[in-house]
Computed example of a mutant assay.
Amino acid sequence: MSNGLAGRTALITGASRGIGRAIAFALAASGCNVVLSSRRQDSLDVVAKEITAACPRSGVLAKAAHVGDPDQARDCVAAAVAEFGRVDVLVNNAATNPYLGPMVDLDLPRAHKTVEVNQMSVIVWTQLAWKASMAEHGGTVVNIASICGMATEPPEAGIYNTTKAAVIHLTRQFAVELAPKTRVNAIAPGIVRTQLSRAMWENREQQLAATVPLGRIGEPEDIAKAAVFLAGDDSSWMTGQTVVVDGGTLIRPTVHIA
């Protein structure tokens, strides 16, 4: 059940924890060689050892890079190609949320940081993977967006929501530009149990779960399963789409009629 992924090479940003780590494990379990990227080499090395132990047939490369630094991104993609010959799957997962508050009070440094990591990195890493490998060999790109890019709640996360809305549109735009050789799709998770979203679910998980039709918040593995589907051949006639994985959060009734 490799979904055609056996022997392919996947590069995952933000791979040291949370959703990125889960996606890396799932792709390795599907037979991919995996290139792990995040800011800290020591954290990546731990994950690399865990994946190697669990999936000994998959090659693993851990390469630290700041996702918002184009030079470091270029070095990481080059290292992936040098190690495995090509990049078949790119998962743009890394994200940040340094500001919680109304947009009218947002300071420019934190606005620039959020856009750099959440939005511009999708452009830069996709460009690099395309030019280094996918233009010749084809491939798939999976962008991690958010249901917050489809709605206006929570209002204190306005700049984060805005960048995730941009990721959804970038997915469509790149899908048009890179077709037919490369497919580009996105996943829009709901609230998932990660460090990035801890402020949203910690100390009120039961309250949040009660608002989700399927009765719980998400786990990183829920998103990883969707990523494997979009990365592999089972989704071969899909591009430009954003798959919502949120336990039904977006379909919950917002108006109650007596």
Rank of each mutant, 00 (worst) to 15 (best):
V91C: 12
R216H: 03
V124S: 14
M150P: 04
Q195T: 15
N161G: 15
V124G: 10
R216T: 04
W237Y: 11
H112G: 09
R183V: 03
G247R: 05
R252Y: 12
L36Q: 00
I144N: 08
I12F: 00
Q173S: 14
S146T: 12
T162C: 12
M150G: 09
N161M: 14
T239G: 12
T13E: 01
Q207G: 14
T13K: 01
T114R: 11
E202T: 09
N143S: 08
A24M: 01
K181D: 05
A209N: 11
Q119A: 14
I251F: 03
D233K: 09
I159M: 14
A48C: 09
N143Y: 03
V47Q: 06
R86T: 08
I168N: 08
R57I: 08
M120C: 15
I168S: 08
F174K: 04
C55D: 12
I187G: 07
T239H: 06
P109Q: 09
T114P: 14
A145R: 05
N3A: 14
L106P: 04
M134N: 04
R57N: 10
T249G: 14
A28H: 07
T182N: 07
I23G: 06
S16C: 13
R40K: 13
F25G: 07
G232E: 02
I147M: 10
M200G: 13
A82I: 06
I123Q: 10
R204W: 13
M200E: 14
D107Q: 15
A226C: 11
I217D: 08
T152V: 13
A79R: 08
S133I: 00
G215A: 04
F229Q: 05
E116N: 15
C148L: 12
L5E: 02
I191C: 14
A227G: 08
V212M: 05
V255M: 13
A10Y: 00
A145K: 03
L108R: 15
L44G: 02
V142W: 04
V117I: 15
M238R: 00
I12E: 00
A132M: 03
P56S: 10
E219S: 13
R204G: 11
T171V: 05
L196I: 07
S121Q: 10
A28T: 05
A10L: 01
C32V: 01
A64G: 13
L214R: 12
K181S: 07
V122H: 04
E156V: 10
Q173N: 09
V115I: 15
L250G: 05
V91A: 11
D45Y: 07
R8P: 00
A29C: 11
E177M: 07
V77N: 02
Y160K: 05
G247C: 06
L100P: 14
R198W: 09
D234F: 09
A224C: 07
V245W: 03
V77A: 04
K181Y: 01
V167I: 11
L250N: 02
A186I: 04
I19P: 04
A80C: 01
V60E: 06
S38M: 00
K225Q: 14
M120N: 15
A6H: 13
C55E: 11
E219A: 13
L36A: 01
T239R: 03
T242I: 10
R252C: 12
P56E: 09
K63D: 08
N185A: 11
R8K: 13
G247T: 02
K49Q: 11
A145N: 09
V255C: 08
Y99R: 10
A258W: 10
V104R: 15
L27E: 00
G139T: 04
H66G: 12
I251R: 07
A157L: 15
T254R: 13
W125F: 15
